[in-house]
Design a protein around this nucleic acid. Structure first.
Lengths: 188, 188
DNA sequence: ACCTGAACACCGTTCAAGT
DNA sequence: ACCTGAACACCGTTCAAGT
């Protein structure tokens, strides 16, 4: 069998969703494709590049109808909800996307969309960069925690009350209020 | 040489600070102590427990004078600043503390202090839990990014404008404004 | 262009045995 | 109580060679 780069990414997502990030190894993925692990290095320079492509594909699959006609703050909320849903759609999705974003190798689209929406609200360059980063840290942090708890409780072992969708919205509303306050001071 | 648990933790922090988290392996730490890697399993059940102890020690070393006499919101800011400084004091400190916290094995003190300060401000249990989590996600996310850029630029390779202390304070002020708004609605 | 086979330099963890 | 020595079951990556 001969594969293209995209075939490898698709299969990597199946392996991720079925066995989890810890078992998404180059050797395991090679075996799954019926190929030597070394063959994967024809398609990707290293494992990090593979993961970057996986993160971008997860985000691309989660894309919804453009929210450009909404008011700027509703648009920000829509981008955050879309990002959350995209990451929750695959096992360990939040960890993969957050890690790739932290390394700066991919997963840049949500940040850019947030900055565009915030620019629409009239926030200046520095403020919108910081606001976008703050939103992203919140979403990545919350959804990673949420997904960890979801997967831990679907296995066994429940501890505290898990982070839920309504928690997500409350925390997000807090951050948005802080941004709106500065928008009213800055804009127009 | 015979060691106690605390000796191993102290040495692990030296290895972390000198070589980074990727090189803080059980084999490497054993070698550094002049001991077989298997000897470490007398002191810790596994590597995760070791890292939890490392994270807690990093936080303990960063503890400053109690801020209990401050107004509740200044106290929240003080806890966040202390947390940031504690993590920045050691190489990869933010990643270690954030990871341990995410796994729920340690690094619980900052969250508890934040909840106490927020309770002081009159926030109800649900709101203060969410507010504390939102603050933690922000601080972990920001400082991890900040530290990655600090370490990357001290090596070589600079890309965008790095996350700085003033960025930290601006993002934190945004979240705090959102929390204060709800405090005024809820308290008294 | 895509893959094999073999090797290099590692990991975390377990366990019987030693002092 | 603390450690050794050896083993088990893995990793990511490189590289000459094959089709």
């Amino acid at each position: 069998m001969r594969y293209h780069r995209e075939d490898v990414v698709q299969r990597a997502i199946v392996v991720l969703d079925t066995y989890g990030l810890a078992d998404l190894t180059m050797r395991r993925l090679g075996a799954e494709l019926g190929v030597q692990p070394s063959a994967l290095y024809h398609h990707f320079a290293n494992k990090q590049s593979l993961l970057a492509a996986v993160a971008d594909e997860i985000l691309a699959r989660g894309r919804r109808a453009s929210s450009e006609q909404l008011p700027w703050d509703a648009r920000v909320l829509a981008v955050c909800a879309e990002l959350r849903d995209a990451m929750l759609a695959y096992r360990d999705g939040a960890e993969v996307v957050a890690t790739v974003h932290a390394f700066g190798l991919g997963a840049q689209a949500p940040g850019r969309e947030l900055e565009a929406a915030l620019a629409d609200g009239g926030l200046g360059p520095d403020l919108r960069r910081t606001a976008a980063r703050t939103l992203l840290h919140y979403v990545f942090g919350h959804v990673s925690e949420e997904q960890t708890h979801l997967q831990a409780s679907s296995a066994g072992a429940i501890d505290g009350p898990p982070a839920s969708e309504s928690d997500f919205e409350l925390g997000l509303a807090i951050v948005m209020d802080g941004i709106r306050l500065r928008q009213r001071e800055t804009a127009r």
